[in-house]
Structures are given as C-alpha cells and as structure tokens.
Write a protein that binds this DNA or RNA. Structure first.
Lengths: 348, 348
DNA sequence: CTGAAAGCGCTTACAG
DNA sequence: CTGAAAGCGCTTACAG
C-alpha cells in the first residue's frame, strides 16, 4: 500500500508537516538547506500528495472539467464518421493540464434535459473543479454562464457567441474563414455558389453564413435565395441540401459546406448524380476532420484550430485569476484554408 | 457558493450526519419514514456529496483511470488520420461510468520512459482510483501488472497477452478474426495472400499472424516467406510493406493488413502503381476505423469491438470485487467481418 | 434503527 | 524562517 503521507516525510526529514507542505507547494520562507532536506525525504519515500486531502485542506482540486454536448458526441463516436472534435480537444488540453499537474475530466451534458442545471450543479459540488471548459453549443448558453458565475467557477468558452462577453473566450474568426473560402471560389471564377448552413443553435453557423454573404456582396456577386440551404451539421442534412441544390434549374458550380459531414454527403450525392468533383462541382468544407483528407478527391477545407483552442482554454484556466479578471477580449486563434483537389475553375 | 454539506442536510431533516450518510449510500437499517425525510431534505437543499471528503472519509474515489500509450495516441490525434481508438474507448466507458456515478480519467503513459512506474505510482497515490483500465501495449506489461497488484489497485486489461492470467481480461479473438479474414479470401479463390504484421510489442500482432498461418495451412495453401511483412501499425510501415510486396516477381493477389493505416497505405501505393483495388488486388484491413468506410473503394475489414470492450472493462471494475477475485477466464467479445468493396475473386 | 466520536491527509491562518 | 492547532466534509467502527 502506498500509504506514504506527509507525516512520513516530516518524520523522515525531521521537520513539521507544515514545512513539508511549504516545500511541496513551493511556498515562500524556506531555507535552501531545509528545502533540500525535505526534497530528499520526498524522493526517498516517493511521496505524492493525496489530491482528495489536498482539496479538503482548502487548496485547488487540480481538476478541469470539459463539458461536451452529449448527443452529438455519442452519435458521432457511434457512427464512426471520424469527426474527431473531442480527440482534438483532448490533444490540446491534456498535455497542457499535465504540465501543471492538472487532470482533465470529460463530462457529457444533455442540453435538452430539464435536469441540465442540476447535473452541472452536481458536478461542481462533487468535483469542485478549478475550471470548466465550455464547448459549443453550451459555450453560448447564458443560463449555464449565469450558473457558473453564481457558483464562482472560472470557465473558458470555446467558440463563444458574439453577444455575451463574460468569461474567458477562445475562438477562431469563423466569419473571416467563410470570407476566405468564398473568395477562393470567386477567384477561381465561380459566381453561382451554394452554401449549406450549420445547425441554427450554433453561433458559428450564423457567422459563417454572414462571411459568405459579405464576400459575395464585396465581389458584386448576387446570391439567389435558393442557393442558401438552412440545415444541420449532419451527413443526412448534407444529403437533403445536396439534392435540393442539384434539382435547381441553374445549379451552383460550387458549394461551401459548413461541416465535413455535409461535404462528404454532397460528394456522395454528386457521385450518384454522375457529377464529377471537381470538374462539374467545386466543394469546400469546414473543420477538416480526417475523412476529408482521405476522400477522393481530397477536399479543400477550412481547418479548425480545435486543439490550439483547447490548449489555450486550459492555459487560461490554469494561469488565470478566474472570475476576478475583468472581461478580457476574446482570444482569436488562426485558422487555415487547406487547398486540396476539390476546387477548380468552373466549366464555363 | 454551493456550500451545502451533510451538516445542512442533517439539520434540515433533524437527524445526525450519520443517518444522512446512510441514506446517501443506501446503507441498511434506516426506516422508510426516516429515509423519506432525509431524501426530502437532500432534494430541497440540492445536496451532493463532496467527492474529496468522501474519499477522505474512507470510501471509494468513484474514479476510474484509463491508461493509454502516450506517443501513438498523441501522434494519431496530431496526424488526424482518424484512428478513433480512444474515442471508441470513451464511448464505451464513459456512459457505463456515469451510470454508477463514476468518472473516467484518461491518462497518457510513456511506455519508453524510465519514469513509467514512478508516474503510475504518482497517479495512484494522488488520485486513488478505484480501478485502472489498461490498453495495449501496457495491458501486456508484466511490470505494470506487478505494480498494480502490489498497490492493490483493481485493473482490467484490454487485449491482454496470452501468457499472463492476472486481472480482469477483456479481449476479442484476434486469431479467429485473422482466420475469418483469410478464409474470406480463400473462399474467393485467392491463394497468394500477403500479410502485414502489426507492431511486435503488441500481442495482437502475433495472434493475427498465427490465425493467418493456421487458416492457410488448413486450406493447404502454402505461404511464401516473402509474403509476410514484419512491420508496424503505421501508415509509413504500410507503404514500405506494400512496396516490398509489389516488387515481388509473383506478387500476392490479396493482402491482409493488420491496421487500417497500413491498409490505407497499401491502397495509396496500389493506385500509384496503377493497380486497381479490388480488380488487381483484394484488400482486408483490421480495426475498421472511420476512414476505411469512406475510402474508395470502401474496405472490407474486421471490426474491432473497442467500445464494447471498454464498457465491459468499466463494468468489471465497478461491479467487481477487484483483487479478491480469483483469476477469471478472459471475457471475449464478438468481432465482425464487414465485407465491403475491396475483396473480389482474383483475376485468374 | 439511530447517534456521538475519531480520523482520513492535507492546508490555512496564527504563533513564535 | 519554522511549528502547533484547527478544520475541511465525509465515513467507518463503536455505542446504545
């Protein structure tokens, strides 16, 4: 049994518990000699502080909780469609947490449950995390933010909406990304461009659509109303939108999808219709999850800096002074337009 | 501040702390009336026990730790190749943990680090998890098992090796899967079948190769030594093996890859060489991660029951009596041969 | 069936 | 710069 406690170390080093605690926590007012002596005892005994006891004593919990939307997360994992949003989040956050002895706990939140707030309260009460990472769409949910503020739990919001400035905010410029994607197509000579929106409850959906509209307006290119398909991020939604667009009398020569799944769906339907991508139809997708690079053709896509955003969120929570900080400006991370084989000039 | 403690509940209900604790933990010897009274107080106050305090008091930690190999995990996430092993593990384990109020902590272990055991000790000492889920290759590491036994931490091993019977073991029949894959090709008429092995430190690599050899022997089909390529699970290894096989005077008409990445690599090289899959070359892959189903052609593959295995591991740890149990027989979960478009009869 | 006491392993004020 | 005391919020024996 690894029952090495602070007492054992104190005895070994011939000092008080208090001094050991100071050394462990890099406290001030310790002689170098004393510090060395205690360190030696710690190493000899292989002492590691018990988190639960630490927490009980009144220190941090060294726990960060990441809330993810339950249904889409489980569905994506189950469908095996390769969306690796959560993996990218872990990739960014876990190593950052490790650096400072923190642990990351992934919790699934059911946004449509009446018990949502109850569940959040339970997690806060039982785990007492030092911070919470909020992902979309929860990162835009005022009532959750209210709750976190009330409970005085520091939080960082990934892809926050535009209309609430509270908390740490980490984002990418979705609007600008859509502008860049649209310009890329305009530069290639496209004028008839279709746009598939993401789920309405995600703020990014609106931002992307705005960017598209702005870029088209800038170029003096008109947008026929039927070119914009309201939809969701899902494959199924992509299928429906693709069918609608392909059925038009003058169908678009290019399509911007708001998610990789949508784009993959368009690719599938295009093939079914005998349309060649990119010869007959150019296609750009948002997010750049794995299947996109492996598809045939590989798709041009906006790469979402999910890992970098999660890392930043963890860093802000670990380093930050939490709720004492005034609302700071959002931290905007760079995205990238990855040009692959799915975008070429239109046929005529 | 959600400072609702057991004391508040006790006062509200007019009983002792002890009684509240009994109700919370479904202890025996409580009147129904008393139970109701306490429950009402708990609901009214929104009381949720503090985990750290619970743990300190001597109860379970309600924490399960899953150890994953650091380097391949991070590399895969970084490369964005869509291997979703970890996601599948989370998909299986997290909901199972939630059911009983447990939390799953994902920890990355550096197998090649001199401090491996130190790190494990630190995690056990600081977190005091109620159980550990071991994934390959750690699930076959005797020294880790020794350490866990010594520390008396219950553990479940995913894809354990054959030569160590300790702990809970959850596996799929890798050998049989290879047999089935091989038979599928034999049934189609293939006799010249290439086999790409996985990384040597993974027990499954050996098991799969054995299955292949056994099935071939059963069918009276000889295996030329050069058809078996020792390699790793990586894309790069797949490229090298593919090149070696394609360079043979009488190249195989079919290839079994030990991982999806290898298979994808073979597919890429085949295209480069002007070989058509499946017309010129049939291809089967192991694991069935997302890009495999989206590739062109979609690949026939052995689907690995990762999520089911993780769920079972969590269940065994949560329900199990841990180390008091005698070594039980391994729990073998069913796999599946998913036949897609990459396997057809050989040309001649 | 219910309650008062001790203790888990730390940290935070408070002395010296 | 170092130490003795109190307390965090629970649970586990132990009484009654």
């Amino acid at each position: 049994m690894g029952a090495v406690t602070i007492k054992h170390v104190a005895k070994e080093a011939g000092v008080s518990l208090q001094t050991v605690s100071r050394v462990v926590n890099n406290g001030p007012n310790v002689t170098d000699a004393m510090r060395e002596r205690v360190r030696a005892a710690i190493d000899k005994l292989g002492y590691v502080p018990n988190m639960a006891a630490r927490r009980m004593g009144g220190s941090k919990s060294y726990l960060l909780v990441a809330f993810n939307d339950r249904k889409p997360t489980l569905e994506k994992w189950r469908a095996g469609r390769g969306s690796d949003w959560v993996a990218q989040m872990l990739l960014g956050a876990i190593p950052r947490c490790e650096r400072d002895g923190y642990h990351l706990l992934l919790e699934l939140l059911d946004g449509h449950s009446a018990k949502l707030h109850q569940k959040i309260d339970a997690i806060i009460s039982s785990l007492r995390p030092d911070g919470v990472i909020l992902t979309p769409p929860h990162s835009q949910d005022r009532s959750i933010i209210d709750q976190l503020e009330h409970r005085k739990v520091p939080y960082a919001r990934l892809s926050p909406g535009e209309d609430d400035e509270r908390g740490f905010r980490v984002r990418m410029d979705e609007r600008q990304a859509a502008v860049m994607a649209t310009r890329h197509l305009l530069d290639l000579g496209h004028r008839r461009i279709g746009f598939l929106t993401g789920s309405a409850e995600y703020a990014v959906s609106t931002e992307r659509l705005e960017g598209f509209r702005a870029a088209m307006a800038d170029a003096g290119a008109a947008i026929a109303p039927e070119w914009v398909r309201q939809g969701e991020f899902s494959f199924e939604s992509g299928i429906a939108s693709a069918d609608a667009l392909f059925a038009l009398r003058g169908p678009p020569t290019a399509i911007i999808a708001s998610s990789d799944e949508q784009a993959l769906a368009v690719l599938h339907r295009a093939k079914d219709m005998g349309l060649d991508v990119p010869a007959d139809l150019s296609l750009i997708s948002f997010d750049d999850t794995p299947p996109i690079a492996f598809s045939l053709p590989p798709l041009t896509a906006i790469r979402h800096p999910t890992a970098a955003m999660a890392e930043r969120a963890a860093a802000l929570l670990i380093e930050g002074h939490g709720l004492d900080m005034p609302p700071s400006p959002p931290c905007t991370l760079p995205f990238e337009l990855v040009v692959r084989g799915s975008t070429v000039p239109p046929r005529r």
